[in-house]
Design a protein around this nucleic acid. Structure first.
Length: 303
DNA sequence: CGCCAGGGTAGAC
DNA sequence: GTCTACCATGGC
């Protein structure tokens, strides 16, 4: 059955499903039929499209996913206020907010999948990250069927531990990624890494980052991505090559060196502090506008 | 064949 | 603390 989710469309920054998913920060969306999109969210295979201020969707189980989808697309967040606030803090961001008014930082429901995805993002392009995440799901996740579309749930971290290093190595993920993934699962099991959002009240950016960067394979940048996309910590500010270029180009007072492929830990933190001071509690949203603009300019979008 | 892709680490000073 | 070589894989 097709469900309809009615939401309050913003007048200033209208939501656009197709574009949001095109720029999505998770890696499991693809086109399906005509204007329909196919995606896997927290074990649900979903087909979805937008008609004005209505989201029409189907799921493989037929379950009511309104609550999850409202959260995921931030349909209940005060987007007008947040984007106005960002625009008033910075004139360049104001331009980008206007240009990409449809952009949203998606609140990903499965922080474990998010963690694995960004562990796999190092020295990799978006298409290959999607491919790797899909490969892990196809091999170890449960099969999901919807109208002839076959997808696979992302395996839980318990399932990953049951599978073990041996079978994981056979996926040839490269760069020791199989070990990094399993190590992360072990640290969660042992209580050294807590990815549950319910258990983190507020302002735990530094605590979360400390736990994350203590893991093998998770450095500053990956930790910030997990914090922002998976843990809903909006002040997290991932600094990758694209963001680095944008900062060096547009902001003279930013401590971003002109051309450095690798940032020292100290330098990285200086840049994050600069960004949080300038953009505030929603620095991570500003980050995504900068990121998207930079990628559009370098024409790297392969989706 | 060489270059690149949303970095991170160990081992060197 | 900071700097480097190296890391594996696939697409072009």
């Amino acid at each position: 059955m097709t469900r309809k989710l009615y939401f309050n469309q913003s007048n200033k920054y209208p939501f656009d499903l197709g574009k949001v998913l095109y720029a999505a920060q998770d890696f499991r969306w693809c086109k399906w039929d005509n204007e329909w999109h196919s995606g896997v969210l927290a074990g649900n295979l979903i087909h979805i499209r937008q008609v004005d201020s209505v989201l029409e969707y189907k799921s493989h189980s037929g379950a009511d996913l309104d609550v999850m989808l409202r959260s995921y697309f931030r349909l209940c967040d005060p987007i007008d206020d947040i984007y106005d606030q960002l625009a008033s803090r910075d004139s360049y961001i104001a331009q980008l907010v206007k240009k990409y008014h449809w952009l949203r930082v998606l609140r990903q429901p499965d922080s474990w999948e998010c963690t694995v995805s960004y562990i796999c993002s190092a020295t990799n392009n978006v298409d290959r990250i999607s491919g790797i995440v899909e490969k892990i799901a196809e091999n170890f996740g449960g099969r999901l069927d919807l109208d002839g579309d076959v997808r696979f749930a992302f395996p839980t971290r318990r399932k990953v531990l049951r599978v073990g290093v041996g079978q994981f190595r056979e996926l040839s993920l490269g760069l020791d990624r199989h070990c990094k993934i399993i190590t992360a699962a072990e640290r969660i099991r042992d209580g050294q890494l807590n990815l549950s959002r319910a258990a983190r009240p507020e302002a735990l950016y530094h605590k979360a980052k400390g736990q994350l960067t203590a893991c093998y394979g998770i450095g500053n940048k990956v930790a910030d991505c997990i914090a922002l996309f998976g843990l809903d910590i909006t002040e997290a500010f991932p600094v990758d090559v694209h963001i680095g270029r944008a900062l060096a180009k547009r902001y003279g007072d930013c401590p971003m060196p002109e051309n450095s492929s690798t940032l020292s830990n100290r330098k990285y933190c200086e840049i994050v502090n600069w960004a949080q001071d300038r953009f505030g509690k929603y620095a991570g949203f500003a980050n995504q506008f900068l990121f998207h603009e930079e990628r559009e300019n370098s024409q790297l979008m392969g989706r």
